[in-house]
Amino acid sequence: MRLLFIGDVIGRAGRAAILQDLPRLKSAWSLDCIIINGENAAGGFGITESICTDFLDAGADCITLGNHAFDQREALVFITRQPRLIRPLNYPSGTPGGGAALVETQKGERVLVINVLGRIFMDALDDPFAAVERELSVCPLGAACDAIVVDFHAEASSEKQAFAHVVDGRVSLVVGSHTHVPTADHQILPHGTAYMTDAGMTGDYDSVIGMDKAEPMRRFVTKLPGSRMEPAGGQATLCGVAVETDGQGLATRVAPVRLGGRLAQTWPDFWDDRNRS
């Protein structure tokens, strides 16, 4: 199975990259399942129903969120009627929406997508390790599903790495999101789980983690409150990670994806991409 995870989409620039590139990539790479982290898609803070629909129409199979899941208050309502939009699994009981989705591909394969929020340097939620263990016990790889992708939305690299080793061999991919900076540690762990500490953002990298530079620079220099931060509007780099799995749902190949914008370009050379411009 061919899986693509795309990191945090930031504002209008990130959305434009998704709508422009995703249909082409889905066809060129014969992708079976595409997952997008969309928690910063609406002006850098949260997601709206129209944006969610646009991403699904462009070819996304599931959209994950994070600590900005409900910054757009309408998400509290529409998430309950959109099963392919998921918020972190370890939000308290009673939070609208779900933290996992079982997506069926066009080939009839089942992909379990889990979104979970870390606790180091983040708001303290329920234990992410225990929450995922409960989900995996209900829907184990190879029995109830053909692949499992975990979006671990967290600050600390150590927390993401520790989690990946705990579930190694039981999920197809653990990928970090939230820091908006792509890491260079993509690998397949000893028991067959693909891992990358952070997929990076899909946004303008001539910025401060996706935001127009002026306001964050002013805040760091003066330590004074100011105006609302706004997403940078230059050309975005689409960032993520590509994974291929075997018949048991474990990873056989993994590669980073960086297309367009300012960053050095890279994509999975083990997939035929003759349509790349």
Rank of each mutant, 00 (worst) to 15 (best):
D269H: 14
W29E: 00
H153C: 05
G247F: 01
E215Q: 15
G97T: 01
I63Y: 03
V150F: 13
P216S: 09
N115C: 15
R73Y: 09
V181F: 02
D21K: 14
G108Q: 05
V132N: 13
Y91H: 14
E155H: 09
A147K: 00
V9S: 01
C145F: 04
N90F: 10
A154C: 08
T183N: 05
V243K: 03
V113N: 07
G210I: 06
Q20N: 12
V175M: 10
G66A: 13
I18C: 13
G98P: 00
K213P: 01
R258E: 03
A255E: 13
E39K: 13
G192W: 01
V149W: 04
D61Y: 01
D269F: 01
L125P: 02
H165N: 13
T197N: 04
V103F: 10
S207K: 07
E215P: 02
G234N: 07
A13M: 05
F152C: 04
V113D: 09
D204P: 01
T252P: 03
G234F: 02
A164D: 08
I47Q: 05
T222E: 08
R12M: 10
H191V: 00
A199L: 04
A28D: 15
H186W: 07
L189E: 04
M196H: 06
T48M: 09
S227G: 11
L136A: 08
A232C: 03
F5A: 13
A75C: 15
T64H: 06
I6M: 03
L136T: 03
H180M: 12
E230P: 00
D272N: 13
L76K: 12
V167C: 11
K223Y: 09
D198N: 13
D198S: 08
H68P: 07
T48W: 08
T179C: 13
T105N: 06
G169Q: 03
M211K: 12
P83A: 07
V175C: 15
I188K: 12
L89F: 07
Q248T: 15
A264E: 15
D212C: 04
G38W: 04
S137H: 10
T179N: 13
A144N: 03
G98C: 11
M196S: 12
F45Q: 14
D168Q: 08
R110G: 06
A194K: 07
V171W: 08
A41G: 03
I114G: 11
P140L: 12
S157F: 05
T202P: 00
V150W: 09
N90W: 11
E155W: 01
G11A: 05
V174L: 14
D123C: 06
L259K: 00
F270Q: 03
D54V: 02
T95C: 14
P83R: 14
P231N: 02
F121W: 12
G66W: 08
P96Y: 06
C33G: 02
L31G: 06
T237L: 06
